[in-house]
Design a protein around this nucleic acid. Structure first.
Length: 797
DNA sequence: ATCAGATGAATTTTT
DNA sequence: TTCATCTGAT
């Protein structure tokens, strides 16, 4: 259709035939099955660039949706590099980011305050807890966590309380609580993540002009990681697509690993049939791994029955074999990993060493990181663990944000409760309960009910509210930075943490919050006129003016004036959000980095889930044991097992050059030694691609006893029926872990004092009696081995 | 109001 | 085992 572009455009250079075909598909629905490492992001961004540069659509007519902020950012960066277009004005973002933008623009229609705030998972849980307390719900029968899960699940399925099928007394009660929770959120002017999606879906669905407007606007809708979409997201996309727009969905059913949070792989098949997709393209050319690694992945995933079908291929040679190692204990496994990766870092003969951050150690569950961390620590190898609390999730940051939210909206009871007595100011649980009763009786917020309380508690409450009111007044004309600085002082947070033992780190984080706000202001361009440039000015040069804007409803100026996230102008007045409200939104939608020294050259430790989308030269997959991987909980049903296999597939395909698979005969789990059999996934890998570093166990235990308790009898592995554990399982029982009798009273992790080296931390202990030695890490002198019989080590509290 | 000690639960994660 | 949450005593 556009031959001159296809042959000449540098955009399309170096695409393989499948990629080229995908990028240049006609304006119709398409499903791109993109295997791991097949250049999926490239196809997605090049597709957008191609559509724009051939004049088939203007920047305002494109919507590109991802799941993570990281992916959205990457797409924008890449697109920016290809075309002189203002990507920040385009609708490229996460589902929730775009929903937020949509609801900010149409807040009246959505029946929300303009500066509505977003509850993250923590906030949502405490909101649910409040409902449960408030209405005397039996917490035994309806735990808050379960209710939260129920509510989120309903929303993900697009179900309002009135729409939930009432089967059984329990469900009826749950729906009742769901409704109460909804009322509470509405009263307080807050929305949870699910609500962002559901509310934007509903208002567009139910408002014809709006519906018409947006359908005319977005001619091209592109979705990344389509296999991860839930029911509601699918419906949301379908609604935007209407009859005439084209949906370009990219995904990989083999990498669907988020069923537990509502993802429906089935959306891919539904998409094909419901949208009558005529164009399906498979991207099977892998640019990442050697063929031994790829063959292993292919062979493994072939064992899944429900697949759309795909086989990765590479032009790279076989590369090195996949190395398999069996350890007697989890500790030994960790030590082997450390030993091996030191070789990798050092290099061997002619081979250069690998940078540490090109080496990843993966595991199924977070708890497994501990042993590995210990081993790395003892060996003095720098490492970085992914996961854990992110910046905006830390307690001190949440506290600070709660104060800020109260400035923006005094009726935000979640925030009110978080800080009403933090730092402590004599408002105990008693007074708070009274306050809550008063608020409920009058149907108002805690803030408004405070006047009704009396006595000393009443005075303290009045003082607290006075403080907030005064702060709000004083910050009225301040910049965001000044506002936060003033709040940190006035709230007493800094003061409080100064007296706390581990307060220094927290204060540092609070200071970091000021920086975060500062860079947010700079990036979003507050106070400048960078907000709303017309599309035409944003797309100079090569970009053809397209007729897409014709037919757009001029009463919806937002649609014609793209704006960065968070500052979407109100559709009626063009008024933008205050920097503070925008920053709070940013904090909820982008929980920040997984802290840790990112810059350092360190080995990367993470779960297989968090490794999705990443790649490394060398990958270790550890703990490959039945019950762990596949996890016990997922082994019961077929779908669960297939998802575990996909998880393993994801893990394998992370590796570029070297892949190690390891398992251990025994493992300390929940304080007890567990005896594990190597995972069944080993039996599903091509023998020719593997190299067994330890003799391959003939599978004695396996054939005789099956896969251990909990494993359902199947045709494939049947016979055993799953017996109880017993020592007989092993031909030669593993040597029990030596635990030194603690005659010296020292333990790893203890702080000790040495007369010459000063204070240090015990990294490990070895030997017994007179031979006992301790490895101690001294900040000044480094790591030392000290014989306890000689060196005097005294424990420091 | 605060803290020690008991108790119980313990995949996977983004927004 | 480790973590968080709850309880009861000070």
């Amino acid at each position: 259709m556009f031959p001159e572009v296809e042959s000449s455009s540098p955009l399309l250079a170096n695409l393989n035939p499948e990629q080229l075909a995908a990028v240049t598909l006609p304006n119709e629905h398409a499903l791109i099955l993109a295997g791991a490492g097949s250049g999926k992001t490239r196809v997605l961004t090049t597709r957008i660039a191609w559509l724009l540069s051939t004049g088939q659509v203007s920047p305002g007519g494109v919507m590109a949706v991802t799941f993570t902020n990281k992916a959205a950012k990457e797409m924008m960066t890449r697109l920016q590099a290809m075309l002189p277009v203002n990507v920040r004005g385009m609708w490229i973002g996460t589902f929730h980011g775009l929903c937020n933008r949509f609801l900010r623009a149409h807040w009246r229609l959505a029946n929300l305050p303009q500066s509505f705030q977003i509850l993250d998972t923590q906030d949502q849980l405490s909101a649910v807890k409040r409902v449960i307390k408030q209405f005397n719900v039996d917490e035994e029968r309806f735990p808050a966590k379960e209710m939260q899960w129920f509510i989120s699940g309903c929303k993900e399925d697009g179900l309002r309380p009135s729409m939930v099928e009432l089967r059984g007394e329990d469900v009826r009660k749950k729906v009742e609580i769901y409704q109460l929770y909804e009322d509470q959120c509405q009263r307080e002017g807050v929305v949870d993540f699910g609500e962002l999606m559901l509310r934007s879906y509903e208002i567009m669905r139910d408002d014809d002009p709006l519906h018409e407007h947006y359908r005319r606007r977005f001619r091209h809708i592109l979705i990344d990681e389509f296999q991860d979409t839930n029911r509601l997201q699918y419906a949301w996309i379908k609604m935007f697509a209407g009859e005439h727009n084209s949906v370009f969905a990219v995904g990989d059913d083999d990498q669907s690993i988020y069923a537990f949070r509502g993802a429906r792989v089935g959306n891919m098949a539904d998409f094909v049939s419901e949208f009558q997709v005529r164009h399906q393209i498979k991207l099977e050319q892998n640019y990442r791994s050697h063929s031994n690694i790829l063959d292993s992945a292919n062979e493994l995933i072939r064992h899944n029955q429900r697949r759309l079908g795909k086989n990765l291929r590479t032009t790279q040679g076989p590369g090195e074999p996949v190395r398999v190692y069996e350890a007697p204990t989890d500790l030994a496994e960790a030590q082997w990993i450390v030993e091996e990766l030191r070789h990798l870092v050092r290099g061997e003969g002619p081979r250069e060493g690998f940078p540490r951050n090109e080496i990843a150690v993966l595991y199924r569950s977070n708890a497994q990181s501990r042993v590995i961390e210990t081993a790395l620590f003892n060996a003095g190898v720098p490492y970085r663990v992914y996961g854990g609390l992110r910046f905006f999730e830390r307690a001190e940051i949440k506290h600070a944000l709660a104060y800020l939210r109260l400035l923006e909206n005094p009726h935000d009871d979640t925030s009110f409760l978080r800080v009403v007595n933090f730092p402590p100011r004599g408002i105990g649980a008693r007074s708070i309960e009274q306050l809550q009763d008063a608020a409920r009786a009058r149907g108002c917020s805690l803030h408004d009910a405070a006047g009704a309380t009396t006595g000393r508690a009443g005075a303290n409450l009045a003082a607290f509210i006075g403080r907030i009111v005064a702060l709000r007044e004083r910050t009225r004309d301040l910049t965001l930075r000044e506002t936060i600085e003033l709040m940190l002082g006035e709230s007493g947070l800094i003061e409080h943490y100064k007296t706390e033992r581990e307060g220094a780190d927290r204060i540092e984080n609070l200071e970091e919050l000021v920086n975060a706000a500062e860079s947010f202001v700079t990036q979003e361009g507050f106070g400048r006129d960078a907000i709303a440039l017309p599309v035409d000015e944003l797309a100079p040069g090569a970009l053809t003016q397209s007729p897409v804007s014709q037919g757009l409803d001029p009463s919806l100026p937002e649609a014609n004036q793209p704006a960065p996230d968070y500052v979407a102008p109100d559709a009626d007045t063009g008024e933008t959000l205050s920097p503070l409200a925008a920053f709070l939104t940013h904090a909820a939608l982008e929980s920040g980095d997984n802290q840790a020294q990112a810059g350092q050259d360190a080995v990367q430790l993470m779960t297989v889930h968090s490794a999705k989308g990443l790649e490394f030269d060398c990958v270790f997959i550890s703990g490959l044991e039945e019950g762990l991987f596949p996890s016990e909980r997922s082994m019961a049903d077929h779908d669960g097992l297939e998802e575990e296999r996909r998880l393993m597939y994801v893990a394998i395909t992370r590796a570029r050059k070297r892949l190690y698979l390891s398992h251990s005969q025994t493992r300390l789990l929940h304080g007890q030694t567990r005896y594990n059999v190597r995972t069944r996934f080993f039996d599903e890998l091509p023998e020719g691609a593997l190299k067994w570093l330890t003799p391959k166990d003939p599978g004695f235990g396996r054939s005789a006893f099956g896969y251990g308790s909990g494993y359902p009898t199947t045709r494939q592995y049947g016979g055993g029926g799953g017996g109880a554990y017993s020592g007989e399982r092993f031909a030669s029982p593993p040597v029990p872990q030596q635990k030194a009798a603690p005659s010296h009273g020292l333990k790893a992790g203890m702080k000790v004092f040495h007369t010459k080296f000063g204070e240090g931390t015990i990294a490990s202990l070895e030997g017994q009696g007179d031979d006992a030695r301790a490895q101690v890490n001294f900040p000044r002198h480094g790591v030392k081995w000290l014989a306890l019989a000689v060196a005097k080590l005294t424990p420091v509290d």
